[in-house]
Design a protein around this nucleic acid. Structure first.
Length: 460
RNA sequence: GUGGAUGUAGUUCAGUUGGUUAGAACAUCAGAUUGUGAUUCUGAGGGUCGUGGGUUCGAGUCCCAUCAUUCACCCCA
């Protein structure tokens, strides 16, 4: 049989990688909990009817679909099969798909359980999602998202707290150079109205979202191709080139949007979010009002966020926004407003690796390895091991009787920082050889001394 | 879905205009060392050169196909 391989865009995570990934997960989960979010998990697969139509046409194509069980071709119309058009038979042979993000399953959950959940409902969710696009740098077919959403309130406190949470997570991870870009769908609508492109919003947004990536000239070229006039382009870029402090930008745009209700609403919301930050005694450091931020997902209606780690060759590592109508698409009569955001763990990992900011200690599993020379000392070592574990110290014993070199080698490879070496001398005296693997120092200590030394906060 | 690049040892890579038995470093294993590792020294194992076809006296090297990987576009975490 040929060598086994992984499906495109998927990865194994070995112990060293897992230690670092868990460091990230732990940090994010801690912050989510601290801000009052409760955990939720949903199935990997959803009904296709739940998933399709929520992410736009592009998104629907990226859904992984699951073949029906059993003899799934039995009832398919023969003429459809003959047409060789896979799209036309998809609905007949597949009714489930893998989740594409965590927001839509969350909305589905809320609608299904709306009598049981009390609003505002704050949930966090850390699970993998799947997208059938072509993998490349920072882009995988299976990746983890860490979502936190609040549904059932319009308060902009949620938006402000999202900024606080992002800051807190990055602080915990040791990432210092990043930018939280914020914008508002209403402001984008205001721009569209101001340049007379009300009917053409989507292609306008898609184009200006690329501004910092491809530059002004290419954006203009793209919009000309979509039929935008020179007049509207000139108007557009006087708006997009707004500079200065957030206050300045808002003042300038207020004048530009004099006839746009949506635009004015967006500016007011944004102003309030920045005011709220002050109430939290938080600065707007790392936060940037970016008029050209658009984001693809079509369901956003209010504030939108995107976070980029600077000087790293990777796309955004976090994003989100407010969506007013998400539950409506599940036939919900009442209008539930939600706001949420998501961290992309895999990209954060890649960025941290590139920046080399993972703390040294993350990979340590056991703190102590018990080494021994023969069956008798191994027997004795098991007793020592039991004592260490009773004291809550992560520890293990080398299971085979083999050369001490091999045992110490094992400790090195597993980055175990301490070893206890036990032989006949140690058994007799009760003074065990306690070795610091990093410094190479060794001293004779009783088991109690070793335990208290390992428990002391000054130990390393 | 569109376009480009790359496939040689477990890993990262050399390999000359096509020429004898395809190399290095790191990693692995063993020994120097019978109670002490990571630093030293010695040795060993490990390859259908991605796969299939073609050109040639001769192909890791040239051509075609195919698969895989990767980068960019679209889109996105």
């Amino acid at each position: 049989m040929a060598n086994p391989t992984l499906p495109k865009g998927t990865r194994d995570f070995g112990p060293a990688v897992m230690a670092k990934r868990q460091f990230i997960f732990k940090n994010i989960r801690k912050v989510f909990k601290k801000y009052g979010f409760q955990p939720l998990e949903t199935p990997a697969m959803e009904n296709l009817s739940t998933l399709t139509g929520k992410y736009g046409e592009e998104g629907d194509q990226l859904l992984f679909k699951i073949l029906n069980s059993g003899d799934y071709l039995k009832d398919v119309d023969a003429s459809k099969l003959d047409s060789r058009n896979s799209k036309s038979v998809t609905a007949d042979i597949s009714e489930k798909g893998l989740r594409y993000d965590l927001t839509v399953p969350f909305a589905r959950y809320v609608v299904m359980n709306r009598n049981d959940v009390s609003f505002p409902f704050k949930r966090y969710q850390i699970q993998p999602v799947w997208r059938a696009d072509r993998p490349q740098k920072g882009r995988y077919r299976e990746f983890y998202q860490c979502d936190a959403d609040v549904v059932g309130t319009n308060s902009l406190i949620c938006e402000a707290e999202i900024i606080l949470m992002i800051k807190e997570v990055f602080k915990g991870l040791g990432i210092t150079d990043y930018t939280i870009k914020i914008n508002h769908r209403g402001i984008l609508s205001g721009i569209a109205e101001a340049v007379g492109a009300k009917e053409n919003e989507t292609s306008l947004f898609v184009a200006i979202d690329k501004l910092d990536k491809i530059g002004e000239d290419d954006v203009k070229t793209e919009l000309r191709g979509k039929g935008f006039s020179e007049d509207s382009l000139t108007k557009l870029f006087t708006i997009l080139q707004v500079k200065g402090s957030t206050t300045n930008k808002i003042a300038f745009l207020t004048l530009q949007f004099d006839t746009s209700e949506k635009g004015q609403k967006g500016l007011r919301d944004l102003q309030e979010v920045f005011d709220l930050l002050k109430s939290y005694n938080e600065t707007d450091e790392h936060v940037e009002f970016d008029v050209s931020l658009a984001r693809g997902l079509s369901y956003y209606t209010g504030c939108i966020f995107e976070v980029k780690i600077n000087n790293v060759g990777i796309g955004s590592v976090s994003g989100g926004g407010r969506y007013d109508n998400l539950t409506q698409s599940f036939g919900d009569k009442e209008n539930l407003s939600g706001v949420g955001f998501s961290f992309g763990v895999d990209r954060i990992y890649d960025a941290m690796e590139e920046l080399n900011v993972f703390p040294k200690g993350t990979q340590i599993s056991s703190k102590v390895l018990v080494c021994h020379f023969d069956d008798e000392s191994k027997q004795y070592g098991i007793g020592v091991l039991a004592r260490l574990r009773q004291a809550g110290i992560a520890s293990e014993i080398y299971p085979d009787t083999s050369k001490i070199k091999k045992q110490l080698d094992y400790a090195n490879k597993k980055l175990i920082p301490f070893t206890v070496v036990i032989g006949s001398e140690e058994i007799q005296s009760g003074q065990l050889a306690f070795k610091n693997m990093e410094k190479g120092e060794q001293e004779k200590l009783s088991i109690d001394q070793i335990i208290s030394k390992l428990q002391s906060p000054l130990r390393s």
